[in-house]
Structure formats: C-alpha cells, structure tokens
Simulated scan of single mutants.
Amino acid sequence: MIVAVWQRAAASRPPTKENSSSTVVVKALFAAGRGCPTEKAEVISRFEWYFAPRCLGNWRSSSRLALESCRSGLVILLLTALRMSTLPLLPLTCVIADDNEMNRLTLEHYVAMTEGLTLAGSFPDGVACLNYFRAGGTADLLLLDISMPQLSGLELIRILPEPLPEVVLVTTHRDYALDAFELQVADYLLKPLDYARFSRTVDRIRTRRAALAPPAPPVEAAEATFGPEGNTLFLKINNRLTRVNFDDVLYIEAMSVYSVLVTAKHKHIVYSTLKVFEERLPFSHFMRVHRSYIINSRHIEAVEDNQILLPGGHKVPIAKAYQESFFSKLRGL
C-alpha cells in the first residue's frame, strides 16, 4: 500500500487537486500507520526528497527555505503520526451516571467496546455517583446525564471532590451548552448517541491526557522477588540484586503498573502492582489506606486530618472508603 502511494506521488507532474502533495501526505500517513516498521522507515526516508520541494505550492521550488519550512512543519507532523501509531493506548477508567436504564446500558456497552477503557462504576442517579467519589473512588472520565432526580448532572459537577475527572455530558437537552462551557466539560453529546461519536470523544480525551501525563518511570525499574523467609524483597536491576527489609518500608505507592517502595533513605521503583503487594504481604501491620497506598503501621507517628504522618515528613492520605477498617485495625494493635 505504501509503495503504491509513493508511486502515485512520483507520477504526478505537477500535482492536481485530486493528487496534490497534501493528499499524498494524508494517504502516506494512513498507510504508514498500518504498515510494518520497515515500511514506516521507508515513508520517513522518502518524505523530504519528494514533499519538501513541493509542499509550499511551488512545483519547481527546492530552495533551502522551502526545505526548512517543510522540515519544521510537515516532517514533524509525519514523524509524530508515525510514532503515535505505534504507542500503546493510554488506559482510562470511566464512571457512568444516568437515571435512564436503557441509556446507562448503552453507555456501558460502548465502554466495553472501547479498547483501553474500563468501567469503574455505573450509577442510576447523581447522589450515588457523588457518594462514590466522596468515598475515595476515582475515574479519568465521567459520562454524565443532566436531568436526574435529587441531584442534576450540572449540580453534581459543581460539588465533585478533587481531583476532577474529565466530564462528558450525555443528554437529550440542547439548552445547557452554555452551562457546560462554563463548567469546562470535555464534551457535550446529544442522545441518541452513536458509537462513532462516542469513540471520537474518548480518543480526544485520551490524546489530551497523554500529552499532560508525567514521564513514564525509568526503564531501570526493578524486578521484585520475595525472599524465602517472607520478610524481605530482592530487587533486580540489570545484574545487581538489592535486598529490602519490609520492616524498613514506610509505605508503598501505586504508580500505574509499577509500585514505589519508600524507606527512610531510598525510593525503589518496582515492576509490580500494588494489588500484588497487598496479596503477598503476610504482615498485619501493612494496611491499605487508599487506592494508591499501603502503609507500615509500625512507622506511624501521628494521624491528623485523615492523613498519616510518617518519619521524614512523609504524609499519606486515608481515603474515606478505608477509614473504618484502618481505625479498627489501629485500635487492635
């Protein structure tokens, strides 16, 4: 496919409206996005010699200015598109709030159809949705109806706790677009909703969040192996093994598919999820206090304003969903 695109490009003398440079650029982008690495490399290597002299609209111009203009614009566009086509999808979690069961089931079906989108909760009204977030629940995306009993979608947005998810209003009403703009919602979708429109919205949100995401953990994240006695962990980076005693661990923090073991002196990035640690740790003094944190209760210095104070000035929040079990275990120590 890519070879054919370039053959058509080279045959045009000069480019017509139907076979212009910009048209061939688009075709090459789509073709390269589906091609193998060798084909993508071929597209990149051929891009400058064909498109650079032509993309400014002058067929015969091959001046340095034209080349530099293309290199600063279209080449960057092409390289970015090719690289993005090989990147994994940014995973997103999603919550739905809609009092209409059929609409809610439709959205749940659309979420299940969308790669990289996981349903964290589905609620029949705004109050249940608000309670989910107040209990420490999180989501990247909130699909929200406007007209709901007791608490409308617009009222819910105004009182949601931080951090706020990306909110997409899904409604039959056209009259709330100004309110949606003032509340800075990510999108405003009208029912009945088709999957193509839904998918474009998710892709746009995913692209924006990916651009704002912090850098990925370093590639030297360690592989973790539990010691035979159960109270130690061996971390392997390249050919080096580092022993970590769990008694020295202040807390463990989730970071995507990684976890961070924090001691008084070091932070160890481990290629293991927080759930794995929660299942494998045999000690009752390690407690889950938040979706993203496990703490070592032996190092607690104080508890203040639903925060656990640890040595070295470390503070770990206690999510509402974990408060009852945490304080119950704390009293039993």
Results as ranks from 00 to 15, higher is better:
residue 97 A to F: 09
residue 96 I to Q: 13
residue 107 L to C: 02
residue 106 T to S: 05
residue 85 S to I: 11
residue 109 H to I: 01
residue 84 M to Y: 02
residue 89 L to W: 14
residue 89 L to F: 11
residue 87 L to W: 07
residue 96 I to E: 13
residue 92 L to Y: 07
residue 88 P to W: 05
residue 97 A to Y: 07
residue 90 L to T: 11
residue 97 A to V: 11
residue 88 P to E: 06
residue 95 V to K: 10
residue 76 I to S: 06
residue 95 V to D: 02
residue 79 L to A: 12
residue 84 M to A: 10
residue 100 N to R: 14
residue 76 I to Q: 10
residue 106 T to C: 11
residue 94 C to Y: 02
residue 88 P to Q: 13
residue 77 L to V: 04
residue 103 N to R: 04
residue 106 T to E: 04
residue 87 L to F: 08
residue 82 L to P: 14
residue 79 L to E: 04
residue 92 L to T: 08
residue 89 L to R: 03
residue 78 L to H: 10
residue 79 L to W: 02
residue 78 L to D: 15
residue 94 C to M: 10
residue 86 T to F: 13
residue 110 Y to P: 06
residue 98 D to Y: 01
residue 86 T to V: 11
residue 78 L to V: 05
residue 85 S to P: 11
residue 86 T to K: 13
residue 110 Y to D: 12
residue 99 D to M: 14
residue 107 L to W: 01
residue 108 E to M: 02
residue 105 L to A: 15
residue 91 P to V: 12
residue 82 L to Y: 08
residue 76 I to F: 03
residue 108 E to V: 03
residue 106 T to M: 08
residue 78 L to S: 15
residue 105 L to P: 07
residue 100 N to L: 05
residue 103 N to V: 05
residue 108 E to G: 02
residue 98 D to W: 00
residue 107 L to H: 01
residue 106 T to L: 09
residue 88 P to N: 14
residue 103 N to K: 02
residue 98 D to S: 03
residue 93 T to W: 05
residue 108 E to C: 01
residue 97 A to M: 12
residue 104 R to F: 00
residue 77 L to T: 13
residue 107 L to Q: 02
residue 78 L to N: 06
residue 76 I to R: 13
residue 80 T to F: 00
residue 102 M to K: 12
residue 98 D to M: 10
residue 86 T to M: 14
residue 101 E to H: 10
residue 92 L to W: 04
residue 91 P to H: 06
residue 102 M to I: 11
residue 108 E to H: 00
residue 92 L to M: 05
residue 106 T to H: 09
residue 95 V to T: 09
residue 84 M to T: 07
residue 85 S to Q: 14
residue 100 N to F: 10
residue 87 L to S: 08
residue 78 L to Q: 09
residue 91 P to E: 08
residue 95 V to C: 07
residue 92 L to K: 08
residue 76 I to N: 04
residue 96 I to H: 03
residue 110 Y to L: 11
residue 95 V to L: 03
residue 103 N to P: 06
residue 92 L to E: 12
residue 99 D to E: 03
residue 89 L to I: 07
residue 84 M to C: 13
residue 107 L to V: 00
residue 83 R to K: 09
residue 80 T to H: 00
residue 103 N to D: 08
residue 108 E to A: 01
residue 86 T to A: 14
residue 105 L to R: 04
residue 106 T to R: 04
residue 103 N to Y: 02
residue 99 D to C: 15
residue 87 L to T: 13
residue 87 L to G: 15
residue 77 L to N: 04
residue 105 L to V: 10
residue 77 L to M: 12
residue 94 C to S: 13
